[in-house]
Design a protein around this nucleic acid. Structure first.
Lengths: 155, 155
DNA sequence: TCATGTTTTGTTACTTTATAACGTAATGAT
DNA sequence: ATCATTACGTTATAAAGTAACAAAACATGA
């Protein structure tokens, strides 16, 4: 998944997974919601709500902001996308089958966003939190820098 | 610092530290910038730019958004405040003397924002990152939940 | 099947958050 | 005092997000 020579596969896989997941959750992946997810998965970069809006607009001029934000809300609820707070943007979740917090690696050169899924990190956060008495409900980590590919090219 | 019965001390300390730091960095903590910092330190909660704006406006009606955002940019550059991406808001940095990444604990009940400064966490992030080849420049962690005080009250 | 409640989408209007661009004033160094 | 630099004022606009209500689609039991 890290090197994606045939991005169509990522896209198709993401959509398949979304269908399956929504069915098992009794959630309705409507054509609109599916289309938005598709636009988000058009790349591995974070996509802005208004970019989705303008792309949808070329197909259907009636689309307005609430349409997009509602679809995004749905996708967020289903865990199919993550919001990238530091960019006001949205990115497809690479493993929506098991719910998790967003741990994002954001390349400042190519824009690619990857997820960092390691239990060790979660443990470390839990351990750091323990002595504080803080009861977490949501923990989001966003790391900016150069992805491995871009680091190579730049060095 | 966690229990702050006399918040005036936090405020005074923060402003003193800011003066010292700016002097040692050759940066100018102008009255305006100082006032914005003061407003941010008026509480331990994250403050929105437009709230700062409206408070400043009661003193001086000429204040416009760029004024506030420029002051905020300065304070961010100097490491005197952190931006809370998940809230579009700003909070005073509790230890600006040693530069660091934002690791924020945000209480969803009382609004208080604290910093979680443990080298172990930084190490864990570095270790998690190592095998990916990702070269980080910025890493922000924002944890929402109940602070120790509010957790007690709620349980 | 059709009446009914629920969910989804359309629509209008607006709020909140943030920045670009350019002019003026204050400051500091020589 | 002059000049360069930095900070601040001002106007306008861009970008991001939501509230509120109407219409359409769907689903489900009588």
């Amino acid at each position: 998944m890290s090197h994606c020579t045939h991005h169509d596969h990522c896209l198709a896989h993401a959509l398949d997974q979304a269908e399956t997941l929504c069915q098992s959750h009794g959630a309705r992946l409507t054509p609109l919601r599916r289309r938005v997810l598709e636009l988000i998965w058009a790349s591995h970069e974070a996509v802005k709500a208004y970019d989705i809006l303008s792309r949808l607009s070329t197909e259907d001029h009636t689309v307005k902001p609430p349409t997009v934000y509602r679809a995004l809300d749905f996708l967020l609820e289903q865990g199919l996308v993550h919001r990238v707070d530091s960019l006001n943007a949205f990115v497809g979740c690479s493993h929506p089958d098991e719910p998790h917090e967003a741990r994002l690696l954001i390349c400042t050169r190519c824009g690619r966003v990857d997820e960092l899924a390691t239990p060790e990190l979660d443990d470390a956060i839990a351990r750091a939190l323990a002595p504080t008495g803080f009861q977490p409900t949501r923990a989001r980590l966003e790391i900016h820098g150069l992805c491995a590919d871009c680091a190579k090219k730049t060095s």
